[in-house]
């Protein structure tokens, strides 16, 4: 199972689903991490955490622990 934090910078992917409970989980859903949404990992912060992703039309940052709640499927156009 691949989650958002397992991607490499530059990887494109699609959101499969968001797992978890509580306020953080809900915020992730509201921000647009819903099934089918296109997502790209842009970079990790210089100290390794948080990370920056591009989701549909905008950029946002989230912590690795939060990115681990988002299951994704890599796009074929980006590498393994």
């Amino acid at each position: 199972m691949v989650t958002l934090k397992d991607l490499q910078p530059g990887d494109h992917a699609r959101v499969l689903r968001c797992r978890g409970t509580g306020a953080i989980f809900q915020r992730l859903c509201e921000m647009g991490f819903v099934a089918g949404a296109p997502v790209r990992l842009v970079r990790f912060a210089p100290l390794g955490d948080p990370l920056e992703v591009e989701l549909t039309d905008y950029h946002l940052s989230l912590r690795k622990s939060e990115a681990g709640m988002i299951e994704v499927e890599r796009d074929i156009r980006s590498g393994p």
Binding site: A23, I24, R27, L28, M31, Y58, L62, E66
Partner: peptide, 12 residues
């Protein structure tokens, strides 16, 4: 309390 989400927009 639970850690606050750090889900933060990086505006253009």
């Amino acid at each position: 309390g639970a850690k606050a989400p750090f889900v933060m927009e990086l505006p253009s």
